[in-house]
Amino acid sequence: MTTAGRADQPDQPDQPDQPDQPDQADQPDQCSYTLSVNGQEHELRGAWMGESLLYVLRNRLGLPGAKNACEQGECGSCSVLVDGELVCSCLVLAATAGGREIVTVEGLGAGERFTDVQVAFTETGAVQCGFCTPGLIVTVHDLLERNPRPSELEIREAISGNLCRCTGYGRILEAVETVRDARLAAASRAAPVAAGATRQEGAG
């Protein structure tokens, strides 16, 4: 049984501004647990145990990439990967996510470098107000990991849980298709080399 332990001396580094959440100053249920986010361990202390992962990422860990819009799993703007599964972080109880590997949009690229998906979004004009963009970027990375050759319908189904109210999706589809085609082209350029290497190994 894993029970998120009660901190002996719960510290209060910040009092996040979320009117919906109970006042956390004098509550007995301030506990500690550990989250692994983008490969880094974070000790959460003095946190209310009912907090969503989205709230903890944004307000306690300073990772604002996942956006807070609907808080009911409808909009997808808070999408993250938990143990490699695409989920809405607003629907994950943070205190139950200990021992699981969480990846947010901040953890997708190498440092400050954009990923190919992010580059394609900016170059095709798939970003307008930008609010839905981080969630879509995580979703598109997940899609192309699972299905390197998605059809337009498969792309539409994959992003159906990410609401965008600016673009009308045309340029988002174009961005995804651009990355898909570029990755496939790169893979086919690499393939003959790999095959040759295998043959050489066999000959050796």
Binding site: M1, T2, T3, A4, Q27, C31, W48, A95, T96
Partner: peptide
């Protein structure tokens, strides 16, 4: 404003632990 918000969170590792806890 007052809240009744004390909440304990448990993550049992087995069905037996779950039903015993329940």
């Amino acid at each position: 404003m007052s809240y009744d918000c004390a909440v304990s969170v448990r993550v049992p590792d087995s069905l037996e632990e779950l039903v015993t806890g329940l």
